[in-house]
């Protein structure tokens, strides 16, 4: 039992030491680590804005499309009444221009796929940011573990802890101190 207590004490001391070390080197990287999620959020906001705007444009295009289809039906009705040649000529011209408009609306619609293409590029930027974060974790871990003879699983544990800290999902110093107190440290 005493042996286990000693091991736990040692572990907690190590945790405290690790927290201290990370705090020392955290400051210079804190700004960049904060910028990563902020930037990713900004990009996500841009993507949402693009999506909403694209849908608004599509709604307007659909309204124009609906009107053009109604015009087309009305012109067809007027043509069916056998109008005099001069009026028929005008009506046929309106019909032709209206069909061109319908085709242009569809063309505009398909150009809105720019949102999808831009979105894919922005997703790539978010992936790059994630990779930078991962590299940042490696830098911190290599500083924390420098000159120490640590096993692979210990390094991996430290890496997880640093990653937690960068994600701001860490236990507080108070929690660590409370635990240490319980073991009389």
């Amino acid at each position: 039992m005493k042996e286990i207590e000693e091991i736990i004490k040692e572990l907690l001391e190590n945790v405290k030491e690790l927290e201290k070390l990370i705090d020392e080197i955290k400051k210079p990287v804190a700004e960049s680590s904060q910028l990563i999620p902020e930037t990713a959020k900004n990009i996500q906001d841009v993507m949402t804005f693009l999506e909403n705007t694209s849908h608004s444009i599509m709604n307007l295009l659909e309204r124009i499309n609906g009107n053009s289809k109604k015009i087309s039906e009305d012109v067809d009705f007027l043509l069916s009444l056998n109008p005099v040649p001069k009026i028929r000529e005008r009506l046929e011209s309106i019909k032709e221009k209206n069909e061109q408009n319908l085709s242009t609306i569809l063309e505009l619609y398909t150009h809105l796929s720019f949102h999808d293409l831009a979105g894919q590029q922005l997703k790539t930027v978010i992936d790059v940011l994630e990779r930078i974060k991962s590299a940042l974790v490696d830098v911190i871990v290599s500083q924390v573990t420098a000159g120490k003879d640590l096993k692979e699983d210990q390094v991996s544990g430290i890496k997880g802890k640093v990653s937690e800290i960068l994600s701001r999902d860490r236990i507080s110093q108070e929690d660590v101190d409370r635990l240490l107190e319980e073991f009389g440290l």
Binding site: E51, S54, H55, L112, S113, H115, D116, G119
Partner: peptide
């Protein structure tokens, strides 16, 4: 498609 705009297009 994961993009709602693309599905609509």
């Amino acid at each position: 498609d994961d993009m709602s705009t693309m599905r609509r297009i």
